[in-house]
Amino acid sequence: MGRRFLTAEDVRRLGGPAIAVDADTVVTPQALEAAASLGIQIQSAGAGSYSPPTPDRGPDAERALKTLSHLPEPGGAGSGDDRGVIVTVIGKNRSGVLAEITAHLAAADCNIHKVSQEIVEGYFHLILTVELGPGASFDSVKTDLEALGGPEDFVARAMHQRVFRFMHRI
């Protein structure tokens, strides 16, 4: 473990035309200022000019990557829940809502697995279980759907299926 920080005090003490720091050393803003005003160059390990290192989150950090290992994704990464989206639409009943929504989903390369719709006293709710195709991204589908309808018409939402699985399945 090398020097963790380089402070303005360090810069003044070390002096010289250049100060070399380890790749993981954080140079404080005050040290950069002091170096600039004294004409000292701060160099990272590769003799280049200093650029801030990526944060070192410590020896435990690799656990972060295995963070959900006790709750594995069904079918592994890249399939199953990763591609599952639940679309809900709630609003006043009128003709053509289902067609409008499904047309958007088809255009976005989404495959609908399940459709459920009910109408109660002039209002409807529609729930679609959707699988994103290889060409679809969750963000664009979500933004697309949420732009449809309106406060006087209907509200459409898209959520990752994973959220529902976490909440409702043990």
Binding site: I86, H113, E118, F164, R169
Partner: peptide, 14 residues
């Protein structure tokens, strides 16, 4: 993909 019932879905939305 495991199907969710309408109630489960609407539960979370609510």
């Amino acid at each position: 993909m495991a199907p969710f019932t309408d109630n489960e879905v609407l539960d979370l939305i609510r």
